[in-house]
Design a protein around this nucleic acid. Structure first.
Length: 506
RNA sequence: GGCAGCGUAGCUCAGUUGGUGAGAGCGCCGGAUUCAUAACCCGGAGGUCGGCAGUUCAAAUCUGCCCGCUGCUACCA
């Protein structure tokens, strides 16, 4: 029997600066989903990468005195290094400058053209180079000296250029029908409502080429034009699927920031419909993570380098924090204090302590040999019930992409296990009833094993260490091994703390 | 301006179709304990459920208005 497939992507990052926490957040959460699906028996393909064309890159390269390709080659390195530091389990890191991608985008263009959806027109308006966008007269604001500025306060100039257009307006009904038939296409619900309202309000045709710069993929048959960056960028998901008729297409899940939901839920499906291709199943718009509740900006001086955070707190602490503290789909905020507090409470005091206290008793009292479980008494039944409920909540939450709720469920299991341990006080039993002590330890160890197996998507590296200590063999670490306890009599390695408490001044 | 959503303990949030004394986690305080990373376990304090006015036997939960915040979107100069 072949495994079911699951194709998941992040948005691709624009490497005109250093990666920030937003990138880290997106790749971590998507990685969690990818790992969860693998453990749950899916054959997963996970795509991430960089969006390397466009005017801003061209200009930045010029400013740096480098050809654009050489420039992006340099700029991409920190993104790849960050992915490595974060333990991102992607199957391909796509770059829109990859040769197979260029070929694919041109083939996609030709299919859309063959369908009669592309036509040559003229684009004019107030253009902001910085924003890489046109604005209507009415959107402009006046600068201090009376000059016209974009809503973002950047300079604009009146620009006229020939452009190819995509007949987006022709797709309004089909998009609305898509939303109607597949409300799960856009998540969370708040984004769905916004996008449906946007489309219902009417669509204008979309300019999809530029002549004002050359750093992009040429339009087939009209080499004066390069393709509009979004057409180029969105098509990366097809390239990563193996091409126009790639074996991995359609994607099951695009994880993107809430700021680019429109491109993924309006333009992208319209492009695909035009090319006669299947549509992705779900686009999930996550929120933004803010530093102490404030947007990061250079002027505020609160720009945080996620690689430095990894260095400081450790990958798994950062991964845990981002998934646990921020409701997936909502905005959230982070701070050093919050990370320390959260991870000490959950990891050091919770999961880590549970593992350490039970393992060390087995090491000291039973020579590190996995004890035999006894008949389930009332206490064991309650533990089991808590775990069944917790496990069910965990899987429901994970499948609904409610990562934070899944961790909530996981912590309820940790609490139940710690409660079971304290209630049965095996340290007291060590003096009165060693057999019963061994049974309590066995039950606790098995509870811990289940918790750690379920935690793997979130903290792959430290859970691997814990599973080693718990004596769980490699082939029993996915979810199919959940109900297979470690055999009694197995020799466990010497336990060592995996989640030490941390303090800020260290 | 329009549409949508939000405002509940110090913090982050749950609170089905209105109805037993308003909850969870974290933080804080106390107790108990010593297996464990001064952790775990038990208990406690903390809230006029944004404001005002209504509907109702009864509203955090419905209606109206107001204040504050967020998102999407439009328009005027």
């Amino acid at each position: 029997m072949s495994k079911p497939r699951f194709y998941v992507t992040t948005a691709i990052a624009y490497p005109n600066g250093r990666p920030h926490m937003g990138h880290a957040y997106e790749v971590v959460t998507t990685d969690v989903v990818a790992r969860f699906k693998r453990l749950d028996g899916f054959d997963v393909r996970f795509l991430t990468g960089t969006d390397e064309h466009g005017l801003k890159i061209d200009q930045a390269a010029r400013a740096a005195g480098k050809p654009p390709k050489a420039y992006v080659d340099e700029m991409v390195a920190p993104f790849q290094a960050l992915d490595a530091a974060l333990g991102i389990s992607f199957d391909r890191f796509i770059r829109t400058t990859d040769t197979d991608h260029k070929a694919l985008v041109q083939a996609l263009w030709q299919r859309m053209a063959a369908n009669g959806d592309l036509y040559l027109g003229r684009y004019e308006g107030w253009y902001s180079v910085r924003d890489e966008a046109y604005y209507d007269e009415g959107e402009l604001v006046a600068g201090d000296d009376g000059t016209k500025l974009s809503p973002q306060g950047t300079p604009v100039e009146w620009t006229v250029e020939e452009s190819w257009f995509f007949k987006l307006s022709a797709y309004q009904d089909r998009l609305l029908a898509l939303y109607e038939a597949h409300p799960e296409y856009i998540q969370p619900l708040s984004r769905f409502n916004e996008m449906r309202a946007f489309v219902a309000g009417g669509l204008s045709d979309l300019s999809v080429s530029r002549t004002s710069f050359t750093w992009g993929i040429p339009v087939p048959g009209d080499e004066r034009h390069v393709m509009y960056v979004w057409l180029d960028a969105l098509a990366n998901y097809l390239t990563g699927a193996g091409g126009l008729d790639g074996e991995w297409w359609p994607a099951d899940l695009h994880v993107v920031g809430k700021d680019v939901v429109r491109f993924h839920t309006v333009y992208w499906p319209a492009f695909l419909m035009s090319a006669g291709l299947p549509l992705p199943k779900t686009v999930f718009g996550h929120g933004h993570v803010l530093n102490r509740g404030e947007k990061m900006s250079k002027s505020l001086g609160n720009v945080v380098d996620p690689a430095a955070m990894v260095e400081r707190f450790g990958v798994d602490r950062l991964r845990w924090f981002l998934c646990r503290e921020v409701a997936f789909g909502e905005d959230g905020s982070y701070s050093d204090d919050a990370i320390v507090e959260r991870t000490n409470a959950d990891l050091a005091n919770g999961i880590g302590n549970l593992a350490q206290r039970s393992l060390s008793m087995v090491a000291k009292n039973l020579g590190g040999v996995m004890p035999v479980r006894g008949e389930a008494g009332e206490s064991e039944v309650r533990l089991k019930e808590a775990f069944m409920a917790g496990s069910e909540a965990y899987f429901a939450a994970m499948n609904a992409l409610a990562l934070h709720k899944a961790l909530d469920a996981l912590m309820s299991m940790v609490t139940a296990a710690n409660g079971y341990f304290a209630e049965n006080a095996p340290w007291a039993l060590a003096k009165t009833d060693v057999t019963r002590m061994a049974e309590v330890l066995a039950a606790t160890l098995d509870a811990t094993r289940r918790i750690v197996i379920l935690t793997q998507p979130f903290m792959p590296s430290s859970t691997a260490q814990l599973l080693d200590q718990l004596g769980v063999s490699a082939e029993l670490r996915d979810f199919s091994g959940l109900n297979t306890p470690v055999a009694a009599g197995a020799q466990l390695p010497a336990p060592a703390g995996v989640f030490p408490r941390i303090t800020l001044d260290s």
